[in-house]
Nucleic acid binder design. Structure first.
Lengths: 354, 354
DNA sequence: TTGTAAGCGTTATCAC
DNA sequence: GTGATAACGCTTACAA
């Protein structure tokens, strides 16, 4: 690869002049510049990124560094999200460095490396826990970052994040079910280690309360991860006396709902909104949701909007703007719940399953 | 961030010693090493990647640099593939730099930058065209790379690639349809700019030939990209006299097949394998395929195996191994059609739609 | 076993 | 307008 030295030699000028000419400085003779640019093109010169980074320059690269979830149920969402984020990064003229962070490896190490090492300009965090060491860590490292999701102490910690309002979402679902006559509503939850899972469950409890329903522990499944665990939980609930059985099941995500659709018919239960059927809902609205049989009633996560806002926030932080961020495509369901703290509303998509 | 200078000062040794101690050289006094390691930990030292790169060191990062397809039909596959590749990279202990390459931007520039700039150790190419300048470019740049897909002149060019045998796949589909009594089989193709699209169409033609059927141009749709174009093509075919109408439709990918499933019922045609119904097949077996109504008969692309082999090849090239590559999880349908040129077989998944 | 110093390819600070 | 030269943080001959 050609370097600025090669260009300088060929042009009979110093490397300083080359650098300035190529970086569009104004104090270079127009003729000199043109000559240098021509030679650079001729030599197929492209600046070495490492050398540039070493000078503290921008990399035009951001990292997406989620904690790798061992729950397989999260994989479809991960793929969808990563794909959308890659596309969104492209629109922002950024490269995306995907670095998965293993649970058992020293988490701190990875983020320190990412932050202090000059490979990326900023970091997008995901899979946030109610109390997540990574927030304080990244704050102390002074690296621009935005979280997808939030901790419990987000008000005090004052870090930038984008979150989808899972609580409000599930409350909408409960309302929908209640208005359709359901009084015994079960919740099928994933592992409660991540904030969003707790948040959704919270919406379930609040929803029940709002409509004067009492939570029945026998109707709450948690830590569901695959068809086997869903099946076990379902069997237990449906073994209850008929009048105590749930008439509706709210799943913490589409993948669990999918399992419900697979398991219930095998146990002799029909799914849908008719009396006698069991209503089933999901969360996410992944691409397959509309094709399920019956089509899944679910909450649509605004993934595209989420990624857009994440990048808007992050690029603003990178540019060190202290001005309030303006969003490239403002979303109707967007609320600013703090400085650089954004909440997006999921949309209830009513289909045949509930 | 702490540097080796900080450590050296605190330890009372030179930066050379620090560097050697931290990089596990044998010629460092054990006591000195332990002290240095302790101080490094204490100072939360992590080596600066840019400085390291500048010395020609590995980045443990590979780039995934597909040409950005403006065809929306390719987006679901892109997401799935990128997600799987990210997961596979993680297993290989690599970071994945996703850099989408816009059609209209100077393609050469992007790859030169990626290759010569020290950000990544190797490149994964995708969306290969029958004649694709990027192959010769990357060869001339001497950067390790592997293509997902191949050019027409792959035998002569001798570059490493992994491809899924679309031709053989579609031939299997034609055989399946023929054996189920179909004699008028239509092909619904995407844009024929990419090799894999041509390859699949080729399988269609060869399949017809093998069973003594004659290709009818009126039964071939090309450049289909969305529901509108699919709808238009379908209408034209079904406007033919009853005995000239297709009884089966082979789509170039699952997304087009999905559109067929949406369009056909609206025109009064039923889909399936029964007499009088129209059989529909796809290609890819994306997650939604099994949930479509009717469930889609399709060819499953071995995405996980593809990504595994891509990374096996690429890491071997990066290590500059001239020995034949051994694959971490050898696949049954894997053929070596040249040195470092791998062909994988798609699997026919028969479901209800054909 | 340890240290000195050169070098990787840039950008930035001064002089001239 | 232009050119030396230092600096970025690291690795690696070569010396000691």
């Amino acid at each position: 690869m050609a370097t600025i030295f090669d260009i300088a030699k060929k042009a009979g000028v110093s490397i300083t002049t080359v650098s300035r000419a190529l970086n569009g400085y104004s104090d270079v003779n127009e003729n000199t510049r043109q000559m240098i640019v021509a030679i650079a093109e001729d030599l197929k010169y492209y600046p070495n990124a490492a050398a540039r980074n070493l000078q503290g320059k921008k990399t035009n690269t951001i990292a997406f560094a989620p904690r790798l979830n061992d729950h397989l149920e999260a994989e479809p969402f991960f793929k969808e999200f990563t794909g959308v984020l890659a596309l969104a990064s492209f629109k922002h003229d950024l490269s995306l460095l995907v670095t998965l962070v293993s649970q058992n490896r020293n988490i701190e190490e990875v983020y320190r490396e990412l932050a202090g090492t000059g490979r990326v300009d900023g970091i997008i965090l995901a899979d946030i826990r109610p109390s997540d060491e990574r927030i304080a860590l990244l704050q102390s490292l002074k690296t621009p970052f935005v979280a997808f999701g939030r901790t419990q102490d987000y008000q005090r910690m004052k870090y930038p994040f984008v979150d989808v309002d899972g609580k409000a979402g599930v409350m909408k679902v409960i309302e929908h079910l209640y208005k359709n006559g359901h009084r015994r509503i079960a919740y099928m939850g994933e592992s409660f280690t991540l904030t969003y899972a707790l948040d959704r469950y919270d919406g379930y409890r609040q929803g029940l309360k709002d409509f004067g329903l009492v939570e029945d522990p026998r109707l709450v499944g948690s830590n569901l991860q695959n068809e086997a665990s869903v099946s076990a939980a379902v069997k237990q609930m449906l073994a209850l006396p008929a009048e105590e059985r749930p008439t509706a099941m709210v799943a913490g995500n589409d993948y669990l709902a999918l399992h419900l659709l697979e398991v219930l018919p095998g146990l002799g239960f029909s799914i849908g909104k008719e009396p006698g059927q069991i209503a089933v809902t999901g969360f996410d609205d992944l691409p397959f949701a509309s094709f399920l049989q019956p089509a899944l009633t679910t909450l649509r996560q605004p993934i595209v909007a989420t990624c857009t806002v994440l990048l808007d926030l992050l690029t603003a932080l990178i540019k060190n703007q202290s001005e309030p961020v303006s969003f490239s495509e403002p979303d109707p369901g967007l609320t600013l719940i703090g400085p650089n703290q954004v909440l997006l509303q999921p949309e209830l998509i009513v289909r045949a399953s509930a």
